[in-house]
């Protein structure tokens, strides 16, 4: 019973990470540069260092890549400034 649950979890994890690898390769070749200009000319060493994180956290990068825009930082001051701008 427990073994089945854990095995299921491991399979799910494997699928998630495999999807991460499939995501990471094109992302690092192309996508990263589109959301972050500094990554566009990133060295091979940089790509290698960032790769494991992309494989693990790829869902957080899907949105920015689709919008081709870097995530913007949120803080009380930044939010208030934007709200004030709109008023």
């Amino acid at each position: 019973m427990l073994v089945t649950i854990v095995e299921g979890g491991l399979v799910a994890l494997g699928v998630y990470l495999a999807a991460g690898v499939l995501f990471a390769v094109p992302f690092l070749l192309n996508g990263a540069g589109r959301i972050d200009q500094d990554a566009a000319g990133g060295s091979r060493g940089f790509k290698l260092l960032v790769f494991p994180g992309v494989v693990a956290l790829w869902p957080l990068l899907v949105g920015p890549w689709r919008r081709s825009r870097q995530r913007t930082e949120r803080s009380p001051h930044r939010d208030a400034a934007i709200a004030g701008d709109r008023r």
């Binding site: 500094d38 994180g53 956290l57 957080l60 995530r71």
Partner: peptide, 20 residues
């Protein structure tokens, strides 16, 4: 510890944003 090490590059600060 892995997640922290894997996101230690400045790329992650810029693209996750510092609060996240």
């Amino acid at each position: 510890l892995f997640l922290m090490a894997a996101t230690s590059h400045d790329f992650w600060l810029a693209n996750l944003t510092a609060p996240v």
